[in-house]
């Protein structure tokens, strides 16, 4: 996984709640067997509408998505995270993320930042007022910062559990970390009851 320390880029406001992973990447894209090439499928149905925010010239090249509450609900498809990354997003900010989506994002180095809804609203207004405003998502300092002329400077601290943060900052591979503890797995396996199910043909 690529490490995430701090990122500064322009942001795009997505004023919708309950954006499910079927909207982020529709099912027919899931037939691909790679982790790349999903960028054209990102929000595919909504992008057919010229007025959709991602189609607006001013938000071209934005790398931070400022989304409504309950982002990433529904299907567990990690393709949703890959699609956001393939398109160029480095971070997503929302007041609430669905659990599986959040887990998937942090395993791929897409930083999902939880801020209070009120702060998300302010940030959306700020980047709507000035689409050229730069937003910094700083994982080292656990802070989001944004500034635009005519708006008071926005500074918001966020929380992320220390272990997840460390893995992101270092870009660590979970499997290698777990395999350092292989002896614990072997011990656990040796003590499992014999009645536990096995999948071998009977």
């Amino acid at each position: 996984m690529e490490a995430f320390t701090t990122h500064t880029g322009r942001a795009v406001p997505l004023r919708r709640s309950n954006v499910d992973t079927d909207q982020i990447i529709p099912a027919h894209w899931l037939k691909k067997v790679t982790r790349d090439g999903f960028e054209d499928g990102l929000f595919e149905a909504w992008r057919k509408d010229p007025a959709f925010v991602l189609n607006q010239e001013v938000y071209k090249g934005a790398t931070v998505l400022v989304a409504g509450p309950d982002f990433g609900t529904g299907s567990s498809r990690e393709h949703a995270v890959w699609a956001l990354q393939n398109y160029g997003f480095k971070a997503v900010i929302s007041s609430r993320f669905a659990d599986i989506f959040r887990g998937n994002s942090l395993k791929n180095g897409l930083l999902t930042v939880v801020l209070p809804q009120e702060t998300v609203d302010r940030l959306q207004k700020l980047v709507e007022a000035d689409p050229t405003a730069e937003v910094t998502v700083d994982l080292v300092g656990r802070q989001v910062r944004a500034e635009a002329p005519g708006h008071s400077k926005l500074t918001a601290d966020f929380e992320l559990d220390e272990n997840a943060r460390w893995r992101l900052l270092e870009g660590l591979d979970d499997i290698s970390l777990t395999l350092r503890e292989e002896s614990s797995i072997v011990t656990y396996e040796a003590n499992r009851p014999s009645f536990k199910p096995r999948t071998l043909e009977v």
Partner: peptide, 8 residues
Amino acid sequence: IGTSQVEH
């Protein structure tokens, strides 16, 4: 779980 966890 997601695909990274499937691999795990």
